[in-house]
């Protein structure tokens, strides 16, 4: 259980995952170092969401290993809550708690899960609201916010737990084109601050700009990976080429 920062913060080795008879992840491996941003791209149904959902144990794993800071996720005795304190996740559908205000959404987990005192949690929450540029929206309910604003609250809510890794699953896919950029900007700033991020995205320009490494998945396997420059300009695999030609 000794993990040091020169080892990958998240290390996935030969991951296999099936839903019933259907095997959707067929041996995926990837490493993420501390402070790195990796993007997973690929066609719909290729298993991108499934991979990142395995990292915080929202999906169980049939075979292989996922280490998060040296802790095995594929361990029947795993304390999922301890894992999830370290791994934040943001969803495509925001999933804010509709009966709580923006500020309460952000404060809930530090208060109830980490049992921090209310005063410092509120201070942190207000800082985070500022960070995601939502001053003035503290007391709004999710239903009163636009999609982009809700998504930024969701990011702040996750950050309030001070996670070591953040998972983003197509967080701009449900947004209007005008609000996509405000959310991408927030993520970009987060990446620049040194947050370790695993992103699933369809925003190629964004991936190229922020990613240290890009993974391309197709039908449950990683077909190709590399730095943004080699990936976008010098793809080798025909499946990657076809995908990129359709999207760019």
């Amino acid at each position: 259980m000794t993990w040091s920062e020169d080892q990958p913060m998240v290390s996935i080795k030969n991951l296999h995952k099936s839903f019933g008879e259907l095997e959707v992840i067929k041996g995926v491996s990837l490493d993420v170092m501390k402070g790195e941003v990796i993007c997973i791209i690929g066609p719909s149904g290729s298993g991108k969401s499934t991979i990142i959902r395995c990292v915080n144990a929202l999906n169980d794993i049939q075979e292989g290993s996922i280490m998060v800071e040296g802790q095995e996720v594929n361990d029947p005795d795993l304390d999922k809550r301890e894992l999830r304190k370290k791994v934040g996740m943001v969803f495509q559908q925001y999933n804010l708690f509709p009966h709580k205000t923006a500020l309460e959404n952000i404060m809930m987990a530090p208060l109830l899960v980490l049992k921090q005192d209310k005063e410092s949690v509120e201070k942190l929450a207000r800082q985070l609201v500022k960070k995601v540029r939502l001053e003035g929206k503290e007391d709004s309910y999710p239903g009163e916010l636009s999609g982009g604003q809700q998504q930024r609250v969701a990011i702040a809510r996750s950050l309030a737990m001070s996670p070591d890794v953040m998972l983003f699953d197509e967080v701009t896919a449900a947004l209007d084109p005008e609000t996509v950029n405000e959310v991408l900007l927030t993520i970009k700033e987060l990446a620049e601050d040194g947050m370790t991020c695993i992103l699933v995205t369809h925003e190629m320009g964004f991936a190229r700009e922020v990613a240290d490494h890009i993974y391309f998945t197709d039908k449950g396997v990683i077909v190709e990976h590399g730095s943004p420059a080699t990936f976008f300009d010098d793809a080798k695999d025909p499946r990657t080429k076809e995908f990129l030609s359709q999207i760019l």
Partner: peptide
Amino acid sequence: LPSGQWEAAESLAFT
């Protein structure tokens, strides 16, 4: 309730 509520809450480490 949408399952996203459970997932969001669980990924915030709530019991």
